[in-house]
Amino acid sequence: MNHSPLKPDILIFGGGIAGLWLINRLNAAGYQCLLLETDTLGGDQTLASQGIIHGGLKYALSGNLSSESESIATMPDRWRAAMAGDDPVDLRQLQVLSDTQHMWSSGSVASRMTNFFASKMLRGRIEKLKRDHFPSALADKAFKGNVYKLDDLVINTESLIDALAAPVRERLLAFDMGRDTLEWGEKGLNAVTVNGQRIEPALTILSAGNGNPALLDGAHQAHLLPEEHSQLRPLKMLLVKHDLGHRLYAHCVGTSNKPVLTVTTHDCPDGKVVWYLGGDLAERGVERSDQEQLAAGRAEIKQLFPWLDFSQAEFAVLNVTRAEPKQQALVKPDNAYAHRDHNLIVAWPTKLTLAPDLGDRVMALVEESGLEPGAPLTVPAELEQAPMGVPYWHRCF
């Protein structure tokens, strides 16, 4: 390729929720951006997430809805604004799986929850349901607990990737680690060469999730972002494919301050559905082998839903690695995180739901850098586009 260098205002690494949200947000502000992805768009963490846009109410289980939860509390409304076309990031094409989420408990926990959820703090954000409004999976007479409705959304993550990719599709480029090169300078990334095409950005954003550690190594060698490190937190999620018809979007609450189980429901191409299981089951599962986790999941489901017959269901394990900023005293897990050093920004949403918060933080850093939107950019047709990711449940059974 013999083109003269491309000079975008901003180059973004990572085609998951962070990078895709940021390119849309910056594009709406007039900045000329390119995004580089080493694998598939959304294919690592985003399409492996449960798609829950929550306002922090599950943290209330510990009685901890403090000021640090304010940014997360506003997130469902921010996503709804984007879905209505009232946000710089346009999500009018986003498919919602459920407008609400449920929380259920049984036995002695149920009475404790009744008192807690009646507290002033939560009034208006959570509602106790009468039995005839229970989700179908919990409607059996054998179920003796309480069910509450939360105002949290659950979205289809595949349609999220589609909606975010569509307006900027020709700017989402494939990056080959074996072929392409990075050239660091004292103020940031001087250039990247992609399939022979030199790209010289004014500003670079590292928002590659699990790819950030390697990118930060390069930055550290150039004496940039020396204090910034990432941590990876593994999860062992479980998938249960069945044709029982029940669509459940809910947290099961036990005696601890974490949901015992978080269930979301997703469609398979063959018409069956998958219950995607997270929560404490997925966190504790990291210490188990896949076989042990499958056994633990079967036992959990049998105990929680004794009236449902999962004997014909198929089970699968999905190992997911969440990427976050290394937790320092000042970093709260219910905020997004972004930091700038010269012409380099490192960013993590920390949770899918916090993508709008990340957009605000990065936008403020870009404006603070003094960068003005530049001339329109034409992307050479020879540059290969990053492929779209595919949800795990489309290919694992």
Score class of each variant (00 low, 15 high):
L225W: 01
E227H: 14
L244R: 08
A250P: 10
F175W: 14
E227L: 08
L239Q: 10
L261D: 12
L216C: 02
A163V: 01
Y249F: 15
P234R: 09
F134P: 14
T181W: 01
K258P: 00
I205Q: 08
W184F: 14
C252Q: 15
N190P: 01
A222M: 05
S159W: 04
H251P: 00
L138Q: 07
F134Q: 13
W184K: 09
L224Y: 09
H251G: 06
H229E: 14
K241H: 09
E183S: 14
I155L: 13
P234G: 05
L150N: 11
L232S: 09
L189E: 11
L153S: 11
Q197R: 03
A208H: 02
P135D: 07
A222R: 07
A165I: 01
L238N: 09
H223G: 06
I161D: 11
G196S: 07
L215M: 02
G188V: 11
T262G: 05
E186I: 11
E183H: 15
L239H: 12
Q197L: 09
G196H: 09
R179V: 04
N156F: 01
Y148E: 04
N210E: 14
K258G: 00
F175L: 14
S136F: 00
G218Y: 02
N212C: 01
I161N: 09
S230A: 14
G196C: 09
A142Q: 15
L206P: 08
S159P: 06
K187H: 15
H223Y: 05
I155F: 08
Y148G: 03
T157Y: 02
R233L: 15
E186K: 14
E127N: 10
L232K: 08
H223E: 13
P167Q: 08
G245A: 06
I199N: 12
L238W: 00
P167R: 06
F175C: 05
L164D: 05
R131M: 00
L225F: 02
G145Y: 02
G218K: 07
L248H: 12
D151S: 14
D151Y: 06
S136T: 15
D243S: 13
Q221C: 01
H223T: 06
L232I: 13
H251D: 12
L248T: 07
E158N: 06
N146F: 01
K128M: 12
P234A: 11
T181M: 11
V240T: 13
V192M: 08
A202T: 08
D217Y: 00
A250H: 07
T262I: 08
K141W: 05
